[in-house]
Nucleic acid binder design. Structure first.
Lengths: 341, 341
DNA sequence: TTGTACGCGTTATCAA
DNA sequence: TTGATAACGCGTACAA
C-alpha cells in the first residue's frame, strides 16, 4: 500500500475486474451479490487496506448516521451522565455522536449549530447556553425539517418541540419544604439567570413552598447570579449581612459548595447555624463535610430518552412526527447539611 | 424556503444567472470575484437560507479541517482540562474538534479510530485506553500518512511518534520523597495497570525514592488495580492488614479519595496514622477533609501543545515532518493529607 | 473577472 | 447476479 494513497472501490474494481457498483454492493453486504464474489471482494478490500470514505457515502445517501449534541460543558457531572446515556442509546441504534460544548456562550452555540448543520448531522440534541435568549439559529435549523430535541432546558420559544426535562418546580418545592420542616424560618435562595426557564421554575417552587407554609417571601433573601464557584462565595458574603438567615436553598451544587467552604472558613456552623441544600448531586456533594443534601437528576435516563425520541424523529422524518416531551421526577437526596444535630 | 429542500450553489446560480463556479468562489471569499457580484451572491445566499454542504466540500478538497480526539473518559477532570486546551488551540487555528471516549475499552477505541478515519479527520490526538496492548488500529492509521499525537500515555510501540506527556518519574519520586521527609517509613503504593507505561513509571519513581533513602521496597505494600473508586476501598481494606503502613502514595486521586473515606470510617486518623498523596489534582482533592496532597498535571497546556504539534504536522504533511515530543513537569500540591499535625 | 468542464468516492437506478 | 451510467454538491484548472 502506498502511503497516503487512499484506496477506493475503483481500485478494488480494477484489481478484480469487477464493476465498482458490485464492489460497493459487496462492501455493504448487499444480498444482491453472490456470496462468492462478496467474499472475494471483501478479502481484497482488507488486503489493499481499503477504508470507506464516509464523506462520499454520506453525500450520496444524504444521511450521516450522526447525532449532534450541544451542551454547555462536558465536565459538569450532570452533563457527563447525560452524554453517557446518549452514547449508549446512539451506538445501540447505529448512530455516531458528535459532542460540542457551548461553554455557555451564545456565539459559540450559533457557530456549533452552523457547523453541525453544514456537516449534515441527522439531528441535534441541545441544552441551550445561559446566554441563549435569541433562537434564530435553532429555528432556522428546524425550519429545514431537521429534528431537534431539547434536554434539561426546554425553550419557551418552541413549545411544540420535543424535550426531556425534570420537574424543577416539584424538586424545589420539596427541598424548601424539607428545610421548613426542619424548623428553618429564614431561607435564602441562590438563583440562576432568569432567562433560563429552569432557574425561574426553581425559584417559583421555592416561593410556593414558603407561601404554603405562611412564611413571608423576602426579596433580598433571593440572590441571583450565574451560580459559579465565585458567585457562591460572593452570595455567601452578602448573606452574612443578614444574621436572620438560617438556611440556603441553592439552585446548583457548585454555588452551594463554595458557599459552604466560605461560611465554614468564617466560623459558621453548617448545618446548625445555616442548613444548605443544593441541586445536581455533583460528586463533590458526597465528599464535602458536612455532606450536601441535594437533588439528583436522572441524567443517564434523560440522555437515553432524548436520543430515543430524536432517532425516532429522524427515522419518521417524512411522516407527521408528533412531538414527544417527557418530564422526569428528580430525587431529593438527604445528607447532613440539612439535618439538625 | 421549502422545508427540507436544501439550497445549493446551483440554486443561487440560477436565481442570479451567474455560473455556479463563480458562486462557489464568491462564497469562499475568493478575490477572483468582483466585490459587486460577491456581495450580490452572498446576499442571495442568506436570503435563500443557503448552508454549505461540508460533505461535498470536504470530499472535493480532501480535507475536513477537523481533528479527532480519542480519550478514555471526558468526565475525568484531567481530560476535561486537556480538551479545553485542545479546543482553544483548534478553534484559533480554524479546526473543528470531534471528541470520542473509549471508556477504557480497546474495542471501542478501534471502532472510533475506524470511524474517524472513514470520516477523514485531518489528524488524531489519542490517549490510549487501559486495555490497549495491540496497536494495529493506530499503526494502520499512521501508515496511511495520517498524523497522530499521543497525549499523556505515549506508546512504546511508536517511539518515533510525537507525544505530549509529563515526567511521571520525577513527580512520583518527589511525592514519595516528601512522605519520607515527613518521617514516614512504611509507604504503600496504589499502582495502576502495568501495561500502561505511565503507571509503571510512577511505580519506578516511588521505588527509586525509597531506595535512595535506604528504605526497603516491600512488594506486598504495592497494591495494583485499575484505581477505580471501588479499587481504592478494596486496597484500603487490604492495607489495614499491615499495621506498619503509615503512608500511601496513590497513582491517582480517585483511589486515594475513596481510600481516605473508607479509612476515616474505620477510625483511622488521616494524616496522623496514615498520610496520603494522590495524583491528578481532581477537584474533590481540594474539598475532602483532610484536603489531599496531590500532583497537578498541566492538562490545558498539554492539550494546547499537542494540538499545535498535530496541526503543524497536518500542514506539513508532504514534507518530512520531524516528530516532536515534549515532557512537561507536573507540580506537587501540598495540602493537609501529607502534613503531620 | 467570469464561464466551461470535470472529478472527488460513493450509491441508486435501470438495463442486461 | 452483475454492469453501465448518472448524480449527490462542491471546487478548480483551464479557457475566454
Amino acid at each position: 500500500m502506498i502511503k497516503g494513497n487512499k484506496i477506493t472501490i475503483h481500485d478494488i474494481s480494477k484489481a478484480l475486474n469487477i464493476d465498482s457498483s458490485t464492489v460497493s454492493r459487496a462492501l455493504n453486504n448487499s444480498p444482491r451479490v453472490s456470496l462468492k464474489t462478496r467474499e472475494k471482494i471483501q478479502k481484497k478490500a482488507t488486503e489493499l487496506g481499503y477504508q470507506r470514505n464516509s464523506l462520499a457515502s454520506n453525500l450520496r445517501t444524504n444521511r450521516t448516521n450522526t447525532i449532534g449534541v450541544i451542551i454547555p460543558r462536558i465536565s459538569r457531572h450532570f452533563f457527563a451522565t447525560v452524554i453517557a446515556g446518549i452514547e449508549e442509546t446512539a451506538y445501540e441504534e447505529g448512530y455516531n455522536v458528535v459532542i460540542c460544548q457551548s461553554l455557555e456562550s451564545l456565539d459559540r452555540e450559533e457557530k456549533i449549530m452552523n457547523s453541525l448543520a453544514s456537516n449534515r448531522v441527522d439531528g441535534i440534541l441541545i441544552s441551550t447556553s445561559m446566554e441563549t435568549s435569541k433562537f434564530e439559529h435553532i429555528k432556522s435549523y428546524m425550519d429545514n425539517n431537521n429534528p431537534v430535541v431539547f434536554i434539561d432546558r426546554p425553550s419557551d420559544a418552541f413549545p411544540n418541540c420535543s424535550s426531556i426535562s425534570i420537574d424543577n418546580f416539584k424538586a424545589s418545592y420539596d427541598a424548601t419544604k424539607l428545610l421548613i420542616e426542619k424548623g428553618r424560618k429564614n431561607i435564602a435562595h441562590f438563583s440562576g439567570p432568569q432567562n433560563i426557564g429552569l432557574y425561574k421554575t426553581r425559584k417559583e417552587g421555592y416561593i410556593k413552598a414558603l407561601q404554603e407554609h405562611n412564611i413571608p417571601v423576602i426579596e433580598r433573601y433571593i440572590f441571583e447570579s450565574n451560580l459559579s464557584e465565585e458567585d457562591g462565595i460572593a452570595c455567601a458574603k452578602k448573606l452574612l449581612n443578614h444574621p436572620d438567615i438560617d438556611a440556603i436553598y441553592s439552585a446548583n451544587d457548585t454555588a452551594a459548595i463554595s458557599a459552604i467552604q466560605y461560611l465554614k472558613s468564617q466560623g459558621v456552623d453548617i448545618p446548625n447555624n445555616i442548613a444548605v441544600i443544593g441541586f445536581n448531586n455533583d460528586p463533590i456533594s458526597e465528599v464535602i463535610e458536612p455532606s450536601l443534601t441535594t437533588i439528583n437528576q436522572p441524567g443517564f435516563e434523560m440522555g437515553k430518552l432524548s436520543t430515543e425520541i430524536l432517532i425516532q424523529q429522524i427515522r419518521n422524518k417524512s411522516e407527521n412526527t408528533k412531538n414527544e416531551s417527557k418530564v422526569l421526577v428528580p430525587e431529593l437526596i438527604i445528607r447532613k447539611s440539612s439535618e439538625n444535630s
